[in-house]
Every structure is written in structure tokens, then in C-alpha cells.
Design a binder for these strands. Structure first.
Lengths: 194, 194
DNA sequence: AAAAAAAGAATGAACGTTCATTTTTTATAT
DNA sequence: ATATAAAAAATGAACGTTCATTCTTTTTTT
């Protein structure tokens, strides 16, 4: 086998082709033959890098999700005050969704539809732990509303996915000012008021 | 043709089968043969009611969307005060998403993925007009933040779709108390503060 | 008895995957 | 450095299957 000897560039071309085609047509409407063509590779070559089509999309999902969360938490430290840490993470996430549209759209597709395997989905979610820990801290300190993490996510992170999809679809353009408005909306929806 | 003579029950069974199978496997992974089987009908019969597979999903989408918006605006009148009207509509929508999970999940799938045709998508969106009118009124009266409708939608309606998907996936159960929390979060994120 | 609706079988195209072969890379010997 | 042999990587064609759709026949309704 010796996977390390195989061309990294070729594997990466396959990953990029998968992202593009799934974004534009959906996973099940994207044939292996087209992924191969877009990556300038033979269909058979795909099976040297991945077990099968399902394994391909699972692996792409987990890797893109890891890239996303790495970016999101890059400048965050658990010692920061809750409000500051949240703003930091939120704006990194907004930044990612704004500037890395292809990757973000792919993640949104996989998160909302029955495309990837449950284990890969779980693995993706596990990368969000720092944010969940921050929220826990915020609730304990009385800075964040003591509601379910699902609600916090629904009202702070998920709206960004929606806006990104609208932007990708060409009906809405996210400007710098929108980011600030959106952050205020997010923070207002979860901050504790006494 | 004489479509009215054909069995309404049979057509409805096809619609229901489509919703169920698309929810569980995605549109492109749902063969006509399985839709036919679940509806207890021959594959050929589908083509008596719909032009083709794409036409089937387009029509199901538009019809389900119409059902949804009919429910959402049932008790609303444009003469209501903005805050009251918004709460009414929002809670009807929450109610629908909570109780009509199958239909809601189907709409979410179609809204987030490249499944349906653009014209059908536009037709679906057009049904939301009363809500957009209400928001316009709210902005004019200084009750609602003067931000893009996309932002208002992202922070009030879209979170419900996320919560519904999580509930459908079995990781989260929406309780009565969550509804109230969620409404407060939604309203806090868009109400004008001076 | 005629017309409409429904059915199952048939069709050609497209799919994911595998196979036999060729090309490229690597390692070795000169 | 160069030639060569072994190994690895990549390929295009082929396989069996499944798909959406159509065709011909049967059943049901009028």
C-alpha cells in the first residue's frame, strides 16, 4: 500500500472535485465518473484512495469539518472571558462561512441531508467541544441563558449557515455591516438578562 | 387526460411515499420503483399523475409548502399590531414544525439542497409574502430592527428548521418550555432596542 | 362495448465497481 | 550517471446491476 507514496495532489483534486460537484448537484446525483473527470483522473484511481463512493464522501466531510473547526478555534483560549471568547469564535466562524463558501456549503449539505454515515457525523460534531464547553461556562457564570445547547446553536451558529446558503445561491450578499448586525442578533438571543 | 377522474387517493399515496422516502434517503437515492411500491402502485402509474420524477418532487414541494404557509398564516390578519402578529405567526410555524415533522423535514431537505427546480423554489418563497409584509411594517413602525429580511428569517424562522431536524434525528426533543425560550430568543434577536 | 386507468414486463442508458493492462516510479547494479 | 528490473500507481474498458421511462396488455370504470 504505502499510501504516503501516492500523490497528495491527486487525492486533494478528488476531494475538491467532490466538494464542487456535491455542492452543485447533490451527492447522489454526482457520479464517480464525473468526480474522476473533474479531478483529471481515471474512475478506477478513486478506488486507490478511497474504499468506495460512500467512504469518499465520509472522509471529505470529516476532513472539511476539521478544517472548519480548526479555523474557528484558532485564536480562542479557554481562559478568556465568556463574552469575549464567544465573540471571537463566532466571528471566526462567520469569517470562514463568508470566505470559504465551497467548504461551508458542502458541510451544510451534509449536515442537513441523509448523505454521510452516522459515525462520520458524530466525529464531525465532536470537534465542536470547545464551543460547548464555553457555553457551559457561560451558563454557570450566569452570562448565557441556561437553555439547551441545541437552542444556543440554532440561534447563533445555524443562522450563519442559512445566510451562507442564500449568498451562495446569489440572492443575498453578506457585507461587513451584516456581520456586525448578525453578531448582535446572535448575542442578544442567548445572553442572560436579569 | 381528465385528471379529476383519476383517483385522488392514489395521487396522495404517491405524495406521501415521496415525502417519506426523500426524508430517509434523499431524493436522488429514492428510485421511482420504491415510491411506487410504498404507494402500492405500479411504477408506470406514477407517469399518469406526473410528467417525470423531477416533476413529481417539484409538485410535492410546492404543495407541501402551500400547506405549511396556509397553516402559518391561518389566524393572522394584517391589521394586528406587529409584535402580536409576529408572535402569532411564529408560534403557528413552530407548531407546524413540531407536529408535522414529515412535511417539515421534507421542506428543509428541499430548501437546503439542490433537489427542486428554481421556479418551484421561487413559487414556494412567494407564499411567505405576508410575513415579509409584516416585517416591513415592523421596520417602518420602529418595532423591528431595520435589517435585511434574510437576517430576520435567519434568526427567527430558520432556527426552528434546525431544531426540527435535530428532533427528527432523535438527538433533541422539543418541549413546550423550549418553544417559549425559542420565541424569546427569536424576538430578542430582531426587536428594535433604543 | 368503449374508454380510461393501471399494471407488469421490457428498454436503453447510466451507475459503481472491478479487471487486465500500461505507465510511472523506485531501487539496484553497473 | 545509466541501464534495468521490480513494484506501485494509474488507466480505459468491461461487468453486472439498477435506474427512469415506455410499451403492450389487462383490469376497471363508464
Amino acid at each position: 500500500m504505502a499510501k504516503l507514496q501516492k500523490s497528495i495532489e491527486k487525492r486533494d483534486a478528488l476531494v475538491q472535485a467532490t466538494i464542487d460537484l456535491v455542492n452543485n448537484h447533490g451527492f447522489h446525483a454526482t457520479p464517480i465518473s464525473k468526480i474522476a473527470k473533474l479531478a483529471s483522473v481515471s474512475p478506477a484511481t478513486i478506488y486507490l484512495y478511497f474504499d468506495n463512493k460512500q467512504d469518499l464522501v465520509n472522509k471529505v466531510y470529516v476532513e472539511v469539518k476539521a478544517t472548519f473547526t480548526d479555523y474557528a478555534f484558532k485564536t480562542y483560549s479557554p481562559t478568556m472571558p465568556v463574552a469575549e471568547g464567544f465573540e471571537l469564535i463566532w466571528k471566526r466562524i462567520a469569517d470562514f462561512k463568508l470566505n470559504q463558501c465551497r467548504e461551508s456549503l458542502f458541510l451544510a449539505q451534509c449536515d442537513n441531508a441523509p448523505i454521510i454515515d452516522e459515525t462520520s457525523r458524530q466525529e464531525g460534531i465532536s470537534h465542536l467541544k470547545p464551543l460547548l464547553d464555553l457555553w457551559q461556562r457561560g451558563k454557570t457564570e450566569g452570562v448565557i441563558n441556561p437553555v439547551s445547547d441545541f437552542l444556543l446553536y440554532a440561534y447563533t451558529i445555524n443562522p450563519l449557515s442559512f445566510l451562507m446558503i442564500m449568498q451562495q445561491r446569489g440572492v443575498f450578499k453578506i457585507e461587513k455591516s451584516h456581520i456586525e448586525e448578525a453578531f448582535q442578533a446572535a448575542w442578544n438571543s442567548i445572553k442572560k438578562v436579569n
